[in-house]
């Protein structure tokens, strides 16, 4: 049985950086069910995808609405508690740590001290030549793509019922792209859980059982793979009026 995540009428407002005390609503009444193998979340930049992922992981608390995981209300659970319940989240921009090695991080993710060969197995899955990386620090010396792969490897090491990946393909070279899809398939095969992938890539949308489009903080479209051609050819959002000069005199 796949995991079951249910968002019911979730709204989220963030502190407005410019005006003190003011809040800006980013997610408006989002309802969504994830109980398939692969669910792809897509939509324009700034549409609220990463924000929604953080709401699922517990990093942001919804201002209203409910989140259920396998039937249990987890709306008020902390990040740690949700992680323990079986939710994993790969950041769009992975975090760097001075002094924490790749093996340390994978060990934390796995919940036990990993041997070099155990850690290597996860790294090999994401296409990193393992021996070169296990003892390296997860610091600024790793390239963007390497860091991104380490991030994915931590999610594999966790192996939870629900895994959320925020643009996992970003910064990963073309050559590795196919293997990345293999990684998701393998993860599903092992855990038999659900995977929510935020992506702009047609090839990732193509493996999805369900595609959800989030635009302006609202779910604007939900459907199977059959909606893909329409999405790809579909009307693009109109460019910013300032850039096109619309609305100005002359």
């Amino acid at each position: 049985m796949a995991a079951m995540l249910e968002l019911q009428h979730v709204c989220f407002a963030a502190e407005d950086g410019q005006e003190k005390g003011a809040r800006k609503e980013i997610l408006h009444d989002v309802s969504l069910t994830v109980n398939d193998r692969f669910v792809a979340l897509t939509g324009p930049n700034g549409g609220g995808k990463s924000t929604l992922a953080k709401v699922i992981a517990g990093i942001y608390r919804p201002t209203s609405g409910k989140i259920l995981f396998n039937g249990e209300d987890i709306t008020d659970l902390s990040v740690t508690d949700r992680a323990k319940k079986g939710i994993s989240f790969a950041f769009q921009q992975p975090v760097r740590f001075k002094g924490i090695t790749v093996r340390d991080l994978l060990s934390i993710a796995a919940g036990k001290k990993l041997t070099v060969s155990e850690a290597c197995r996860y790294l090999a899955e994401v296409g990193l030549c393992a021996r070169e990386y296990v003892e390296r620090e997860v610091n600024a010396s790793l390239s963007g793509g390497e860091l991104k792969r380490v991030e994915i490897a931590t999610i594999l090491a966790r192996g939870t019922e629900l895994s959320v990946f925020d643009e996992p393909e970003a910064g990963i070279d073309l050559w590795s792209f196919n293997s990345l899809i293999g990684v998701f398939e393998e993860l599903h095969r092992k855990i038999n859980g659900s995977i929510l992938i935020i992506s702009h890539q047609e090839r990732i949308l193509n493996i999805a059982d369900k595609i959800v489009v989030l635009a302006d903080g609202r779910v604007s479209r939900v459907g199977g793979r059959e909606i893909l051609p329409e999405l790809l050819s579909g009307a693009r959002p109109s460019p910013c009026a300032v850039l096109t000069g619309e609305g100005r005199n002359g």
Binding site: I59, V79, A83
Partner: peptide, 8 residues
Amino acid sequence: TKLMTLGL
């Protein structure tokens, strides 16, 4: 936050 998403 990152380490908390890993269960710590």
